[in-house]
Design a protein around this nucleic acid. Structure first.
Length: 635
RNA sequence: GCUGCUAUGGCUCAGUCGGUAGAGCACUUCCAUGGUAAGGAAGGGGUCGCUGGUUCGAUUCCGGCUAGCAGCACCA
C-alpha cells in the first residue's frame, strides 16, 4: 500500500503496517515523539494497523493534549471501577483544560476530596504497569451484552445506529466504550491531578438524575503540570471576589444575593469607566437617555418579554396594575424613538443608555460580579436605514477595537447567523442582514468566525470575545440586528418620498455589563489598575509625620486641584510599614516626603511593583502622571 | 433550581471527642520619631449564620432555612 506524507512524498509499505513503524522508517526520533496519527483525515492510534493506501500525519506531544487527557479519563474510570466495583459510567471526554468522567459510584456513595486522593493513588498504580491501550471492534449486540450492568453505557450504545461497528478500548482488565484514539500505553499518564468533584446531570439535561463528575488534568511533562497548578493559584489570587474585598471595591450582602453594593473605591472605578464611556460615545455622535426602571406590564407584552421571560422578571402590583422591573432597556429606547417623528435624513439615531436592569437569576448561577441580579448595561439602540448598516456596523467595530485596546484586551469576533427553524422575518431580510454584518467586519479589516444557526430568533449578531491576561475568554461586546421589535412597536421614519418606512434597529453593548466588566478588569489587571482607572492614584507618605505633614498636605491639595486622586498616610507608623501598606493596596504611585524632599522641593517617587525610587520635582511628577493618564486614546 | 461542601470577632483562620471560645492582621491608647514591604507594649471587640430538635447543658450532634464555594442546568 502507498502511504503519502504531508509534504506530498510517498512510500510503499506492507499492508497492516502501523503508524509507529511508518514513523520509524523516517526517523527514530520522530517515532519516539509521536503519540497518534491522522490517517486519511481520521485519528488513528499509533499501533493500529493501516490496511490501505493512505495519507498520514503524525501527531506529537504538542498536538496531543486532548488525546492524553482523554486517555487519562479512561485511567480514572479504571481506578474508580477497581475501588467501586458497582460504579456505572456516563461519558468521560477531554476538555479544554483537562478531562472529566461522569460516574455513578453506587447506591448512596458520594465522592469526597479524600476519595479523590485514594482514586489518584490507584490511578498512579495502574498507570505504572505500562498497560497498552488496545482497540477492539465489536457489534452493538455484543457491546450491549458487555455493558449489561451499566445503564448509562447501555443508553449510549442503544442510541447508536444499528449495524455500525462499535469500538472499545481496553487497558488492563478495564474496557470502555470509546471512539479513540488514545496514547499507546498508560505509561504516558504520569503527570496528572484530580482537581475537583461535583454533580452533573446525565446527558446535560436538568430533568435527568445527576452523576458525580470528577475533573482532572494530565500533562506529558511534570513541569507542565506544576506550571498549570501554579497558574490556577495565580487565578485564585486574582479572583475579583477576593480582590474586591481586599481593595474595598464592592460588597454583596446576605440581604441582597446577587445585588452588589459599590463601595467608595469601587465607585471611583465605576465612575471613571462611565465617564470614559460617555466621552467616546459623545465623540461618536451618540445622544444619551435614561428610561424608567419599572414599566407597565402591557409594554412587556408588546415587547414579548412578558411571554418569554416572565419567570426571570421582578414584578409588582401597583393600583391593581402589573408592573415589571426592566430586564432590558430596549422597550424604553423604542418609546423614546416613538416620541417624535423622524426623517430619513436624521438617521442613524443613536440612543445610548447606561441602563440598570434586573433579572432573577437562579441562585446557583450567582458568581461575584460575573453573574448578578442587577447590572448596568452600557446599552445603545441605533435606528437606521438598511443601506446604512454596513457603514454603521463597521464604525462600531472600529470603536470596539479602540476601547478594548485601551484595556489591553485582545478579542475575536463571532458572527451568529439565522437559526434553522425558530426565526421571524423574511429569509431575504436575514440574508441581507447577515451579509451586512459580514461586510462590516471586512470593511473594518477584522476576521470573524461564523456560528451557523446561533443567532437570536429576531436577528443575526456579532459577538466580541475578549481574551484576558490569563487566557480566559469573555463575551462582552455584542452588536445585534433586530427585525422583531421595530415591527412590534411599529416604529417608522419618513422617507424621501414622504412615505412611512420601517427603520432597522441595532442593539449594542461594548462592556456588556459594567459590573461584570469591572470584575473582568479586576482579574485582568490583578487589581493593579492602570493609573487612569486606579481608585487611589497616589499615596503621599511623610517620613516623619510631625515634621513633614505640612508639605504633604500642600502636595495633596495640588494634586486634587488637577483631578488626580491622592491619599495621605498620616498615621504615626514607620515609613516601611506605610510603603508596604500602599504596595499591598496596589496604589500606582507612592510619594515619600522627608527632610531632603522638603529642602529641595522634591518628591521621592516609587511606582507600584517597583523597588526603585526617583527624585522628581513636584512639576516633573505631575507631568509624568498626567501624561500617563492621557495615554488613553480618546482621540 | 440540582449535587456536594462550607458558615467561629472588620479580615484570614485555629479550636471545643457536648460544659457558652483563641491567634495573627486591622482598630484604640501609650512608648518609640522612624528614609522605601510589618518597631514594641497594653486594651476594646465574638450569645461561634438563623431556627427547631436531642440533652441537665448545644458553637460542637440531628433536622429545616439562609448565604457562600465547586460544578451542572440556565444566561433574552
Amino acid at each position: 500500500m502507498k502511504i503519502t506524507f504531508p509534504d506530498g512524498t510517498n512510500k510503499e509499505f506492507k499492508k497492516g503496517t502501523h503508524a509507529y513503524e511508518i514513523a520509524s522508517s523516517i526517523s527514530s526520533s520522530l517515532a519516539k515523539k509521536s503519540i497518534y496519527a491522522i490517517v486519511n483525515g481520521k485519528p488513528y492510534d499509533l499501533y493500529r494497523p493501516i490496511e490501505e493506501d493512505a495519507t498520514i500525519e503524525l501527531k506529537t506531544k504538542e498536538d496531543s493534549f486532548d488525546v492524553l487527557n482523554h486517555s487519562c479519563s479512561h485511567l480514572l474510570a479504571s481506578a474508580v471501577k477497581k475501588l467501586y466495583p458497582q460504579a456505572m459510567f456516563g461519558v468521560g471526554p477531554s476538555i479544554e483544560e483537562g478531562f472529566y468522567y461522569d460516574i455513578q459510584p453506587g447506591e448512596g456513595i458520594k465522592f469526597t476530596e479524600t476519595d479523590l486522593a485514594a482514586i489518584e493513588k490507584e490511578m498512579k498504580h495502574i498507570a505504572s504497569q505500562d498497560l497498552p491501550f488496545k482497540r477492539i471492534e465489536t457489534t452493538k449486540e455484543e457491546a450491549l451484552e458487555l455493558f449489561k450492568n451499566d445503564k448509562y453505557k447501555q443508553e449510549i450504545i442503544r442510541d447508536l445506529e444499528d449495524g455500525v461497528t462499535i469500538t472499545l478500548y481496553q487497558h488492563g482488565d478495564y474496557v470502555d466504550l470509546c471512539r479513540g484514539p488514545h496514547v499507546p500505553s498508560t505509561k504516558f499518564l504520569k503527570n496528572f491531578k484530580l482537581t475537583n468533584v461535583s454533580g452533573a446531570y446525565w446527558r446535560g439535561d436538568s430533568k435527568n438524575e445527576q452523576l458525580q463528575r470528577i475533573y482532572g488534568v494530565c500533562f506529558f511533562e511534570e513541569k507542565e503540570l506544576q506550571e498549570h497548578l501554579q497558574h490556577l493559584e495565580e487565578r485564585a489570587k486574582r479572583d475579583h471576589r477576593k480582590l474586591g474585598k481586599e481593595l474595598e471595591l464592592f460588597m454583596i450582602s446576605e440581604y441582597g444575593p446577587g445585588f452588589p453594593f459599590w463601595l467608595p473605591k469601587g465607585m471611583v472605578l465605576r465612575k471613571t469607566l462611565e465617564n470614559y464611556w460617555y466621552k467616546v460615545h459623545t465623540r461618536e455622535n451618540y445622544q444619551f437617555i435614561q428610561t424608567p426602571i419599572m414599566l407597565n406590564r402591557t409594554l412587556w407584552e408588546i415587547s414579548g418579554h412578558w411571554e418569554n421571560y416572565r419567570e426571570n422578571m421582578y414584578t409588582s402590583k401597583i393600583d391593581d396594575q402589573d408592573f415589571a422591573i426592566k430586564p432590558m432597556n430596549c422597550p424604553g429606547g423604542l418609546l423614546v424613538y416613538k416620541n417624535s417623528i423622524h426623517s430619513y435624513k436624521d438617521l442613524p439615531i443613536r440612543l445610548g443608555e447606561l441602563g440598570l436592569v434586573h433579572r432573577h437569576e437562579a441562585s446557583g448561577a450567582l458568581n461575584g460580579l460575573f453573574r448578578v441580579r442587577n447590572f448596568t448595561q452600557d446599552d445603545a439602540h441605533i435606528f437606521l436605514r438598511e443601506d446604512q448598516i454596513v457603514s454603521e456596523v463597521s464604525s462600531l467595530i472600529r470603536l470596539y477595537d479602540e476601547v478594548y485596546s485601551t484595556f489591553n484586551l485582545s478579542y475575536h469576533i463571532e458572527l451568529s447567523t439565522r437559526p434553522e427553524n425558530k426565526y421571524i422575518g423574511k429569509l431575504e431580510t436575514w440574508n441581507i442582514a447577515e451579509e451586512a454584518l459580514a461586510n462590516a467586519c471586512k470593511s473594518a479589516g477584522k476576521d470573524f468566525k461564523v456560528n451557523p444557526g446561533d443567532g437570536a430568533f429576531y436577528g443575526p449578531k456579532l459577538d466580541f470575545k475578549l481574551r484576558d491576561s490569563m487566557n480566559r475568554i469573555w463575551q462582552c461586546g455584542t452588536i445585534q440586528l433586530d427585525m422583531n421589535l421595530p415591527e412590534r412597536f411599529d416604529i417608522t421614519y419618513v422617507g424621501s418620498d414622504g412615505q412611512l418606512k420601517r427603520p432597522v434597529m441595532l442593539h449594542r453593548a461594548l462592556f456588556g455589563s459594567i459590573e461584570r466588566f469591572i470584575g473582568i478588569l479586576t482579574e485582568h489587571f490583578g487589581g493593579a489598575f492602570p493609573v487612569w482607572l486606579a481608585p487611589v492614584q497616589v499615596k503621599i507618605i511623610p517620613v516623619h509625620v510631625k515634621n513633614h505633614q505640612e508639605y504633604v498636605e500642600k502636595i495633596y491639595e495640588k494634586l486634587r486641584e488637577l483631578d488626580i486622586r491622592p491619599e495621605m498616610d498620616l498615621r504615626d507608623e514607620k515609613l516601611s510599614y506605610k510603603i508596604r501598606d500602599a504596595q499591598t493596596k496596589k496604589i500606582p504611585y507612592q510619594l515619600v516626603v522627608g527632610d531632603n524632599e522638603v529642602e529641595h522641593q522634591q518628591l521621592s517617587v516609587r511606582k507600584y511593583g517597583s523597588t526603585e525610587t526617583k527624585q522628581l520635582s513636584v512639576d516633573e511628577f505631575i507631568c509624568q502622571i498626567m501624561d500617563e493618564i492621557k495615554t488613553l486614546k480618546y482621540k
